[in-house]
């Protein structure tokens, strides 16, 4: 190794290190580049399509659109959804199939969106809630239809 090469090596090495230090120095002095957020205080608005959990939409009259066709149950890869049906008497005196319980196991759900796609009446949708932690696993099993709710008029 010649002496010139030796000095050149040192020069290049020091130069590359100083360039690196310039970069970190830039971020040290430019605080506007900071991108982190104070999480619980500042919450980011999540995207509209963000898949947090499955919800059954109810309107103001406490009516939903689920006919109990179990398309979502069949589409689900993990057995997350269980639909318990019952037979209701319509005013005309006919028996009609309706949901008794829409059981949703959040602990099994992988948010794959296949149930939403499968639903023929757009009864279920994905909600943006993401803070699901609870102390007991049993709390993650939810019944999605609200008590006393019934199917919307005209949805078959």
């Amino acid at each position: 190794m010649s002496a010139i090469q030796y000095i050149k090596d040192i020069y290049n090495a020091v130069k590359s290190l100083l360039i690196g230090m310039k970069q970190t120095g830039y971020y040290f002095t430019h605080h506007k580049e900071i991108i982190t957020q104070n999480y619980p205080e500042e919450k980011q608005q999540l995207a509209e399509r963000f898949r947090g959990e499955v919800v059954l939409t109810h309107d103001s009259n406490n009516e939903h659109k689920c006919t109990g066709c179990t398309a979502c149950e069949l589409a689900c890869p993990n057995g997350t959804i269980k639909i318990v049906t019952k037979f209701e008497l319509t005013p005309e005196g006919k028996k009609k199939k309706a949901i008794d319980k829409f059981v949703y196991h959040l602990e099994l759900c992988t948010m794959c969106n296949l149930c939403i796609v499968a639903c023929p009446t757009d009864a279920i949708k994905m909600d943006q809630a993401f803070e699901h932690s609870v102390f007991d696993r049993s709390q993650l099993t939810k019944v999605l239809n609200k008590p006393g709710s019934k199917i919307m008029e005209g949805v078959e």
Binding site: T24, Y27, F28, H31, E33
Partner: peptide, 13 residues
Amino acid sequence: KVSAYMQIRVGPN
């Protein structure tokens, strides 16, 4: 704090 500012973070706050 120094590391936080260099890493575009806020650090302990």
